Computed example of a mutant assay.
Amino acid sequence: MTKLIRITTVPISLDKLLGEQLRHMNQFYEVTAISADENRLREVADKYGVDSFHVEMTREITPIKDLKALWKLFWFLKREQPEIVHSHTPKAGIVGMLAAKLAGVPIRLHTVAGLPLLEESGLKRKILNLVERLTYACATKVLPNSYGLKQIIIDLKFANPNKLEVIANGSSNGINTKHFSLERILEQDRQLLKKSLEIKEDDFVFIFVGRLVKDKGINELIEAFQKINRNDVKLLLVGNFEHDLDPLLPQTLESIENNLNIIPVGWQNDVRPYLAISDALVFPSYREGFPNVVMQAGAMSLPSIVSNINGCNEIIQHKKNGLIIASKDSQQLYQAMLEFLNNEKLFINLKEKARSNITHLYDQEIVWGALLKFYENLL
């Protein structure tokens, strides 16, 4: 059977970004998942019924560790001789594509699900630009997971446009619209969750899902929410802080701690119950590839307020299934949140269209089918 290698820097990306896609592809190919953190990798591989191989990688610039990872992966690929190596995430991209090229793997694919370098400057930006160009040079095809991201790569001259291809309508994995559905969450469970979080029946609940960091627009979100200043409006924050990698402003952290209408609940394995008790998603991120949470919220019939960046502005059409605001603009974000609160007719109209947009364009079966066909054509 044809061998397919899927690589991410850390196992959580295999689990959360790809998940059941690994099991699905294993019906057609002999799939091996490669990532760091050996114990967690084995758990993820066992969960989806695929083989695994451990290569320790980091999310930071660590040249010595990266060379060790490259060496280990190179010898694994030389031994296994797979037909396809497909990498995701920046560090797995450079290690995976370089090792695959050196090992003579014929089909080398790298999915780009965002460009963290866009928020960097100076020497670090130059290093990251170089790494990105080298990754794309080693790949036979580069797969941006949104059309906006494809254009950014072209504008930055990171790769020849002929090397770039977007699968289906965008997204690395699509979304399981049967799983992400209000029908899957019992009403009694919703009421219990609301009660535990002290959310009243008539409260309007905005929700943010993701890492609670600067690059996700959390500083602007908290600033905008503070201006609303109504006890019948709540803000649910679902996700972890990253104080070391991308810290929030001290005043933002203080507001989160002291404002009783802001409800941080930390990381959740299943975000559906939290989406089910919410009215609208707020996602003012600075940069994305193709954000899963915007698709998840839409599938759960939530309209979204998103920043005008690639991915977000492809899933959301302004005043059709959500609102689009300028990135890093707390005033526009505040005005958009007010519009959801004060313009009931608009809000209901957006809510009614939220799910159908996702099911028609981004259902998982559409994306998986397109990727399988892409593999087959290359082979």
Rank of each mutant, 00 (worst) to 15 (best):
L361M: 11
N169M: 12
N259G: 10
E365D: 14
K328E: 12
L156R: 14
W75R: 08
E254M: 08
I348M: 12
P284R: 06
A36D: 15
A299T: 06
S330E: 04
S327G: 04
S196N: 09
H110N: 09
E198F: 04
Y29D: 06
L134M: 12
K227L: 07
G93C: 09
S172R: 11
L67H: 10
R40Q: 14
K150F: 11
A354R: 05
Q81A: 11
E254Y: 09
K126E: 02
S35M: 12
P106R: 10
N229L: 01
R59M: 08
H110D: 06
T89W: 05
L4A: 04
V293L: 08
S13A: 15
L164M: 09
A113N: 13
A36K: 10
G93K: 08
K126T: 03
I218K: 03
Y48H: 12
R6S: 03
P247W: 03
S181T: 01
Q188M: 03
S146Y: 10
T32V: 13
F74H: 15
H110P: 07
K65A: 15
E376H: 15
P90F: 03
A299E: 03
A336W: 00
E314P: 05
I316K: 00
F225Q: 02
K3R: 12
L275S: 00
V85K: 10
V282L: 04
F158S: 06
D279K: 00
N231Y: 10
H88D: 07
R230K: 15
E60F: 14
L253C: 11
Q27T: 06
F283M: 05
D244F: 04
V166T: 09
R211Y: 10
S171C: 10
G369E: 08
A276Y: 00
S87Q: 03
V166N: 12
K157V: 04
R211L: 05
V209Y: 12
I325N: 04
